[in-house]
Each structure stands twice: as C-alpha cells, then as structure tokens.
C-alpha cells in the first residue's frame, strides 16, 4: 500500500464512524392543536392519522385541527425555539440517546411557554413513532393541545 493512501483511509474511516448523517435528516416537529367536538368533524390532518383514534379515546374529542406548526433540526446541538403559533412557544434541546435499550430515541429537554408564562418543563425520551402531547389551556372553542414528534 502506498503511504499516500493512508490519509484517504483515515478520512474514509472517519466518515464511516460518523453518525451525523443520520441525525441531519431527523427533525423535531411541533404543533398546536385545537381539539373539539363537532357534529360533522373535519378529517384529521394526515400527520395525526396514526394516533387519531388514540387521541379521540384519550381526550374525548372527535375533531383535531392543527392551528400552527414548527420544525427544527435535531442535529442542532444548541437550544432551539419552536414557535408553532404566536402564543405558544417551545424551547427544545434534543440529543440522540446512547442507551442501547432505547435505540433510535431522542432525549428532549423542552419547556413550553404560553405567551410569556412558562407552563411546563420536561425531559422526555421520544422516538419517531412516539409523539408527546401536552394538554394546554381550555379555549372557548375547545381544548388546546401541543404535540411534539420526531420526524425522519
């Protein structure tokens, strides 16, 4: 082997061991949802369809509308702000878990604000098919929910 090839091998090995490519495609999606009961409920948004029946049973509403949404990249290793609507903000820091038991999951440190009021702070482990819902305030027209989900 030519000694000049050694740096190339180094670079190839580094690229092989680099997990950043998988992280770069991953996003954290958040949305503010208004849950309500309607005589003729609108069709559930596509993104909520996998959990629609569960939400319906859990919260007791038959209609879920997305009022606004926001997305951030997981590979941002700093705190990010998600602003799905003008009134609800989320401060999120996400990192991939290293535990073998929780492979593919992400550890999120998040804080939910309503206007300037902090409502809740949590550390949660989420996966691509395991969204987290936060039951927010009650509005005259329904129940406000905030959802966070890992998307690929």
């Amino acid at each position: 082997m030519n000694l000049r090839q050694i740096p190339l091998i180094f670079i190839a090995l580094l690229a092989w061991g680099q997990p950043g490519s998988a992280l770069a495609e991953t996003k954290i999606w958040s949305a503010v949802i208004l849950a309500s009961n309607a005589p003729e409920p609108k069709e559930s948004p596509e993104v909520l369809k996998p959990v629609f029946q569960g939400l319906k049973r859990f919260f007791g509403y038959n209609q879920f509308e997305i009022l606004g949404s926001s997305t951030m990249s997981v590979d941002a290793k700093v705190e990010e702000w998600l602003v799905p609507t003008e009134h609800f903000w989320l401060s999120v820091r996400a990192r991939k878990t290293t535990s073998k038991e929780a492979r593919g999951a992400y550890l999120l440190n998040l804080e939910l604000f309503h206007d300037k009021r902090p409502l809740v702070a949590t550390e949660a482990r989420l996966g691509p098919e395991s969204p987290l819902f936060i039951r927010g305030p009650v509005h005259a027209t329904g129940q406000v929910l905030v959802v966070l989900q890992v998307q690929r």
Binding site: E86, E129, G136
Partner: peptide, 25 residues
C-alpha cells in the same frame, strides 16, 4: 400514558381559561 393507543400526555391543570375572543392562531 395509554399503552393501548400509544399516547403519552403531560396533563396540565391550573391554566387560564381562554375566552372566545382570544385568537389562538
């Protein structure tokens, strides 16, 4: 947590009621 429907929720109580005049969007 509802394991049957795979739903996890943080249930907050003690929040202010938002009147109809409050624009959620």
């Amino acid at each position: 947590h509802d394991s049957r429907d795979n739903v996890t929720v943080l249930w907050l109580e003690g929040l202010d009621y938002l009147p109809a005049s409050y624009n959620l969007r």
